[in-house]
């Protein structure tokens, strides 16, 4: 079984990018499907994470430190967004008593 794995210390860029995009797609799917508000926010974090993976991959090939720096910025953004989003979720829980996304229909029509 071992000889199926390549004997190099590098992997095709495609695989890493594929991984990142797969995580992103999983997060997207989850965002569309789940009902709980907090789980939705978690799926958003998943998507961000997927994007980060792709960025790190591209930091290596072609070699450039810039994408990695953007990843660091992404951390900050994600943290801020998660903070505010969760604060809102708590508020919604306090007001509506539920975290079902379908209960948030104020913009209907």
């Amino acid at each position: 079984m071992i000889h199926f794995l390549p004997l190099t210390d590098s992997v095709p860029l495609a695989h890493i990018v594929g991984l990142g995009v797969a995580v992103f797609a999983a997060g997207a799917f989850g965002f569309l499907v789940r009902r709980n508000l907090i789980v939705l926010l978690m799926c958003v974090e998943l998507m961000l994470n997927g994007a980060n993976i792709v960025l790190v991959a591209f930091s290596r090939a072609p070699a450039s430190p810039d994408p990695q720096v953007w990843v660091i910025f992404m951390f900050a953004v994600a943290a801020a967004e998660a903070g505010v989003g969760l604060a809102l979720a708590v508020l919604i829980w306090r007001r509506l008593g539920t975290l079902d996304i379908d209960a948030l229909k104020g913009l209907r029509g």
Binding site: S10, V11, P12, L13, I16, R60, A61, P62
Partner: peptide, 9 residues
């Protein structure tokens, strides 16, 4: 970009 390879560690 898929002709490229990423080096590990």
């Amino acid at each position: 970009f898929f002709i490229a390879f990423v080096k590990l560690a």
